Simulated assay, not measured.
Amino acid sequence: MAAFLLWLLLLVFCWPLALLALVLYPIVWLICLPFRLVGITVSAVFSFLGAILMLPARVLRGRPA
């Protein structure tokens, strides 16, 4: 809601900049999308490697003495 009100304020005071932001936002979002997907993939790989490396400790901890 605050972002919308700020955009309306920008539209009132500087409408060319507001219209430029409105047009460029989807383009910037599309450019950033591959980097976001790479970040998600790298995070998943690190989580997977951490789970594999911690597996022996989990198995040993779960075994009764």
Rank of each mutant, 00 (worst) to 15 (best):
L6S: 05
I40N: 13
L55N: 09
I40Q: 14
A3F: 00
M54C: 01
F46C: 12
A3W: 00
F35A: 14
F48L: 12
T41H: 10
F48Y: 11
F35P: 08
L22C: 02
R63G: 08
L49S: 09
F4Q: 04
F13I: 09
W29S: 04
V45K: 06
F46D: 13
V12R: 10
R58D: 04
L17T: 01
V12C: 07
L30D: 09
L9V: 04
M54T: 00
L11H: 10
A3M: 00
R61P: 02
M54R: 01
A65F: 15
A18G: 08
Y25N: 07
L11P: 02
P34D: 12
L6I: 05
L20D: 00
L9G: 02
A18W: 12
A57V: 07
G39V: 15
W15E: 04
I27N: 04
L9A: 09
V45C: 10
T41M: 09
V42W: 07
L55V: 07
G39M: 15
V28Q: 07
L33A: 11
A18P: 02
F35L: 13
L60G: 04
P64K: 14
G50W: 07
S47F: 04
I27M: 10
F46A: 12
A65D: 15
L10G: 11
L19C: 00
W15R: 06
L60F: 13
P56S: 04
A57L: 07
P56I: 08
I40H: 13
P26I: 03
P16Q: 03
L20C: 01
V42E: 11
L49D: 09
I52G: 01
L19I: 00
L37H: 14
R36V: 15
V28S: 04
L37A: 15
C14Y: 13
V28A: 10
S43F: 13
V12M: 06
A3K: 00
W15A: 06
L10W: 07
L30I: 02
L9K: 03
P56N: 06
A2Y: 01
G50A: 08
P26E: 06
I40A: 14
P16D: 03
L30W: 09
C14P: 05
L24Q: 12
R63D: 11
V45F: 10
L17I: 00
L33I: 01
L10H: 07
S47G: 08
L37V: 15
R61H: 14
R63E: 13
I31P: 02
I52L: 11
L22F: 01
V38K: 14
W29A: 10
V59F: 05
I52W: 06
G50H: 10
